[in-house]
């Protein structure tokens, strides 16, 4: 594949999907804009390197979501995340939430979840992935997804005073 083709296709993908990836990263990081931007940069760089394989797979959006989630989970496994890895000042591409107070409350509740539970909640309830898809993205079993989801919803229910479905 020619480099120019790769650049063109990748740029089109970035234009279309970067905003959504950044929103996903914002939720996974519970509202840390620098960390979210870092995750998106890492994800897109991996995507560029493996672009021919990504194209062949035929689902670049799914690939990117999974790569971003893996990057987040992997990063959380490390004892000390080093912020100096950020390669540039975060872009201001995520505008403030429409309801800042409510957004802060929700992000605060997400912050209270362990990273994997947070990822389960975001993938299941924001991206609307089913249990199997979520398990695939996180590299775990569907049973783990269900148990993590139940614990996460219990925490969010207590924190947000919501009526939530325990299992979808």
């Amino acid at each position: 594949m020619r480099s120019i083709d790769r650049d063109t296709e990748f740029a089109e993908f970035v234009t279309a999907q970067r905003p959504t990836l950044l929103r996903l990263a914002r939720l996974l990081t519970a509202g840390d804009p620098a960390y979210a931007e870092d995750l998106v940069q890492t994800t897109l760089t991996r995507l560029y390197v493996h672009w021919p394989r990504v194209r062949r797979a035929g689902n670049p959006v799914g690939y990117a979501r999974t790569a971003l989630t893996h990057a987040f989970v992997d990063e959380q496994r490390r004892a000390h995340r080093r912020r100096e890895h950020l390669t540039e000042t975060p872009r201001e591409t995520t505008a403030p939430a429409t309801d800042p107070d409510l957004a802060d409350v929700v992000l605060g509740a997400l912050r209270g979840l362990p990273p994997r539970q947070r990822a389960v909640v975001v993938l299941r309830h924001w991206l609307d992935l089913d249990t199997t898809e979520t398990a695939r993205a996180l590299g775990c079993t569907t049973g783990t997804v269900k148990s993590q989801n139940a614990k996460a919803l219990a925490h969010l229910r207590a924190t947000l005073d919501l009526t939530l479905e325990d299992q979808r």
Partner: peptide
């Protein structure tokens, strides 16, 4: 919950410059 998460994710502006991502990838 999905609505709450959607609000918390904020609004995303359009991408005007893809070059930094392309350069990092290269």
């Amino acid at each position: 919950l999905s609505d709450l998460l959607d609000r918390a994710a904020g609004q995303a502006d359009a991408v005007h410059d893809t070059r930094p991502d392309v350069v990092r990838g290269r």
